[in-house]
Each structure stands twice: as C-alpha cells, then as structure tokens.
C-alpha cells in the first residue's frame, strides 16, 4: 500500500450508516412533478457544475450560498466532511434545487444550505421541508441547528417554522445566530409546510435517474450552458 493512500485513509472521517432519504414527489403549481431524492456521491461532480455559475451572483446572496455549498459538496465528495448528505429536486430530470446538511450525532442535525435554481415554484421551500423531514422523521433526530444567510432564508425558515433562537450555541457555518428546529416545532409546522407522495411511481422516478444540468439560470439573464 503506498504512503499517499495510507495518509489519505487517515485523513478521511469515519462515516456513519445513515438511513437513506426515501424519494418522494410533489406536484408543483405548474402541474410539473418534482422528484426529491438523495443524491449519490458519484453525482456530486455534476451538482458542483449546477452550482458553479451562481458563485458570482451577488443578488439575493446567491454568491455566498453557492460558494459555501460548492465547498461543502466538494468536501463531501473528497471525504473531508463527516456524515454529510445532499438531497436533489428534479423536474423531468433537470436539477431545480438542492439542499444539504450533516449529522453531528444521533440526536443533532446540522442544516447547511438550500439553493433554488428554477424560480417561481417555491422549489427551495419544498427542499428545506424535505431536509427537515429527513432529520426529524427519517433519521429520528431530536433537533436541527439552522442559520439563515439571506433575508429570504430568514423568512422561509425562522419565521415559517417559528424556530427557537439559541444564540449561545455555535452553528458550523460560523457566527450567524443559530436557530433550532425541535421535534415539536417540526410537527406543529408539518401540515402547512411539508408534503409529498411516496412511493414515487417507477416511471416518474426513472426521470430522475440521470441528473440533467439546467440550461439556463433565471438568476443570470442571458446565460446559456
């Protein structure tokens, strides 16, 4: 065994066995069906390509979210973040939105980022809800730490879910004040904010098998892939 490989193995964090996020679909306002499923590790390079054009979009804080999201997914792909996951939302296979987070331990989840590419359908709100569903209902965790890095995020998460402020605890994303989703808060908001149907019909799920890069970004007028 060569030394570089041995060292690499030492650098990699141990990975916890996580229950996978069971795919679901949501009928969006347009009538289109958005499939939400867990992204596979081998799909991360494509998701990095999805994010990359947004890294320099200042409007609505896409730059900060995209740059950090890119780094988090790269860390996930190259084994530098422990117990991370990524969920992806697709319509006809095209990536509309993504979100990620990680497990701190069995009881505590750490929400990272949520990003919408296709706008006007509230895809991001559904992705965030899916992420909370994953932590609370699938992984059966007690709490999720959440921060907002944009006013839109603050309104969507802190206000919509009435998150509990817990400013003395440290979120992994830095100094932005930490808010917490508890199980009680999640179940109080669930009826209004969380939806989706399982299982996803086979034909529909198939559309999401191969992720497709968005051709255009409403955030970057005139940009074409």
């Amino acid at each position: 065994m060569n030394i570089a490989y041995e060292l690499e193995m030492k650098l990699r964090p141990p990975q916890k066995e996580m229950l996978p996020y069971p795919a679901k679909f949501i009928t969006m306002a347009s009538g289109e069906k958005m499939v939400i499923r867990q992204a596979k590790r081998e799909e991360i390079p494509l998701l990095l390509e999805v994010i990359e054009p947004l890294i320099k979009v200042e409007k609505d804080f896409y730059d900060i979210v995209a740059a950090r999201f890119y780094a988090e997914l790269l860390g996930f792909f190259r084994y530098r973040v422990r117990d991370e996951y990524c969920l992806v939302g697709t319509i006809d296979g095209v990536v509309t939105s993504i979100c990620n987070g990680r497990l701190v331990n069995d009881d505590l989840g750490m929400s990272y980022h949520t990003m919408t590419i296709k706008r006007g359908l509230r895809c991001g709100a559904q992705m965030f809800a899916a992420k909370m569903e994953y932590h609370i209902e699938i992984l059966n965790q007690k709490e999720v730490f959440i921060v907002a890095e944009s006013p839109i995020g603050f309104r969507r998460w802190m206000i919509e879910y009435q998150l509990e402020p817990r400013f003395h605890v440290q979120h992994e994303l830095g100094g932005v004040p930490t808010y917490v989703l508890t199980r009680d808060l999640y179940f109080a908001a669930k009826e209004r904010l969380v939806t989706g149907t399982r299982p996803v019909p086979e034909e529909l799920l198939k559309t999401s098998d191969t992720l497709i890069l968005p051709e255009e970004y409403p955030q970057i007028p005139g940009w074409h892939r």
Binding site: T27, A29, R192, T195, G196
Partner: peptide, 11 residues
C-alpha cells in the same frame, strides 16, 4: 398544481 392535487395546500 394550485388547487386539486393532494400537495396543493402546501404548494
């Protein structure tokens, strides 16, 4: 999408 599906009340 906005009225008839079982997801409409959330969407």
């Amino acid at each position: 999408g906005i009225a008839d599906s079982c997801h409409a009340s959330v969407v």
